[in-house]
Design a protein around this nucleic acid. Sequence first.
DNA 1: GCTCATTTGTTCGTATGTATC
DNA 2: TGATACATACGAACAAATGAG
Lengths: 261, 261
Amino acid sequence: MARSPSARRGAAGRRNARAIARYRLVQDGLTNRIEKGEYAPGDRIPTEKELARLYGVSVGTVKTALLQMVHQGLLHRIQGKGSFVSGSLIGRDQLRLYHFVEGFDDDDAPLQVRFLALHVGVRDLAAARWLRLKSGETMFRIDRVFAMGATPVVWTSSFLPQRLFAGLEQLPREAFETKPLYRLVEERYRLPTLRYQEMFSAVLSDGESGPPLAVPAGFPLLQIEMLALSFRDRPIEYRQSLCRTDRARLFRLPLRAPSSA
Amino acid sequence: MARSPSARRGAAGRRNARAIARYRLVQDGLTNRIEKGEYAPGDRIPTEKELARLYGVSVGTVKTALLQMVHQGLLHRIQGKGSFVSGSLIGRDQLRLYHFVEGFDDDDAPLQVRFLALHVGVRDLAAARWLRLKSGETMFRIDRVFAMGATPVVWTSSFLPQRLFAGLEQLPREAFETKPLYRLVEERYRLPTLRYQEMFSAVLSDGESGPPLAVPAGFPLLQIEMLALSFRDRPIEYRQSLCRTDRARLFRLPLRAPSSA
DNA sequence: GCTCATTTGTTCGTATGTATC
DNA sequence: TGATACATACGAACAAATGAG
């Protein structure tokens, strides 16, 4: 016989307008554990049966909670194997931050990364604002160039709060060239990039931006300002990029409305 | 007692590797009805109980199908009222195609639309390619300017397949100024914009693009090529836009990974 | 290659809570 | 207040994928 949702809460635990659904308790509990780093991206979480026992709910309720988290992009499930913590949004499927193509139906060529410099103790008003830093806090700045074959295409500066990324300056430069920055951040600091916001504008190259991109002054460049967000929409990276778009244009995959659920 | 999924299919209908889940049959059936226009955006579809009877499945199975469609963005459900067909992606929440801001945390001011011209029988190689037209097919071209107060910000040409939008040329120009184009297309031709793709580049203004945007030649402009997709990813509009970004930058809401489910 | 235990996927049925009109 | 419709919750059974033996 099916029990009512309030049956297990005793006489005083009757449902009211502000009552929280039990699957949401499971969902929030698991989400917190992931955010605290108890489960890292790639880890398998307990099975439905174990979770049902842990939280004192039915398997169906656990299933509801896990499916919500799948739709949020926090988990993925594999039949016969288990449920796993997902990592950064970028890198799933064909999703890539920089994706240059000739047309909508074009396949893109991956870009080669070249590390230029890492600065410590950086202060920058705009970057500090978007990263919501307290006054006086400093940042790392990582400069890189992305090239398409021999042609430099993107010149980018990434700003990261120094407080969150202790020891970053001790990494060898290869660390920044062999894998994308978001993956390094995810693996080493357990901060997956779950969402990001962007602002686009067009600017003219000058004496500073011209040489790294091998274009003369007065050349039109696409400027992208990107803010990467992790758990609870915490900003973890602010990136400013300048792109040559004379050979290929920047492509964006279809947008989907964020599901508020 | 619970019946097995194959129980109702008789002895010959045993499940095999290629068997399709029953909730998917409901999902596909409803999706087809929506695509055929039997249910238009805003319409209420039958209740769970009615659908269960119609498709010969349990209410729970119907629920699974409807929740999938909610996550696809095709439906939204309101407790106590029913399930409703959703319209275009754009216009939901704060989502807007053109969204110019000073910074990530900035509120934007809506843009005023000014209709310039509607051309009939247009041929354009690039546009025809993205819209997947048969050779010889013609398009409408609608030119508009979006302004922020007195300052023109976006100059845009929209290409629409003439075959899909019969009678568009007979609409008064007010029709293109009082409501967004995607809404006109959705309401009048029952083609909601469900997804869109974009390509970004930077160009210099010339004699043609300078005057409408009130900028001198050689001014950096953000170029956006947008392809709007409706049901079954059918392209319904190709739009080419040039934007001034000297006062405000183009903002894009967070991307979410497309749910393949 | 086969069997078996494990784990998620699908389906049914039922009961009750909550929002809407 | 009652009828209706969606939301939450439980339990049971079988299907399908995975991996170990």
